[in-house]
């Protein structure tokens, strides 16, 4: 019964933070709520008996992918000067509600980890089973995923070059374009 209650609490936190993430004006605030939503999803994964997926959700989704968003938001600076953005970010109304949601999730995960052996009575599919399946029948999918990641790497490198647009606009970038060796024009 307790497991069900924890599931519903995490689901409520996930829904609230997702709705808030979609409706924020400021991209940084939306990102905070999105990270909370992903952490709530990780707790749900753990509760339904998928601990490896929960770890991947925290490490890769809430860690790596969201850090990419943070980099881009900080890189673009989005029109505001830094001081104004800091003032808005440090106002209490902006961080109290995300902190409350985080505290709910934290209390929940501490409780789950303390009473894990008598809480998770369903079938737990651990990392060993996942690994055996992944490199047994699904090894072709692993290869395809690696090629997909390589394509993503090449695409991000190609799109992230700074002189990609300068070739067309400014004459000073002509030597760079000639040096790059490929023909965009």
């Amino acid at each position: 019964m307790l497991e069900l209650g924890l599931f519903y609490i995490a689901a409520t936190v996930s829904l609230i933070s997702t709705i808030l993430a979609v409706t924020r004006y400021n991209a940084a605030h939306a990102l905070i709520y999105l990270i909370i939503s992903l952490l709530a999803s990780a707790i749900i994964f753990y509760l339904v008996g998928a601990p490896f997926a929960a770890v991947l959700e925290v490490v890769i989704y809430a860690g790596a992918i969201m850090v990419l968003f943070v980099f881009v938001i900080m890189l673009l600076n989005l029109g505001q000067s830094g001081d104004v953005a800091e003032h808005v970010l440090l106002r209490p109304g902006m961080w109290i509600f995300p902190s409350v949601l985080c505290v709910i999730l934290f209390v929940e995960i501490v409780y789950v980890l303390q009473s894990s052996e008598r809480l998770l009575k369903g079938i737990v599919v651990g990392p060993k089973d996942v690994g055996l399946e992944l490199f047994g029948p699904y090894v072709l999918a692993v290869e395809i995923a690696s090629m997909l990641l390589l394509a993503g790497l090449v695409g991000a490198y190609h799109l992230g070059r700074r002189y990609f647009i300068d070739v067309r606009d400014t004459p000073t970038a002509q030597p760079l374009a000639a040096m790059s060796g490929d023909d965009h024009e």
Partner: peptide, 30 residues
């Protein structure tokens, strides 16, 4: 159903999300 296939599909979705977000953020910068 107590099988590992769901988690494997989740890992594939994770790699798709990583590739998609890297290309999407590159497009965003452009």
């Amino acid at each position: 159903w107590g099988v590992a296939d769901g988690q494997i599909m989740f890992m594939l979705i994770l790699s798709i999300a990583a590739a998609e977000v890297s290309v999407g953020l590159g497009l965003l910068l452009q």
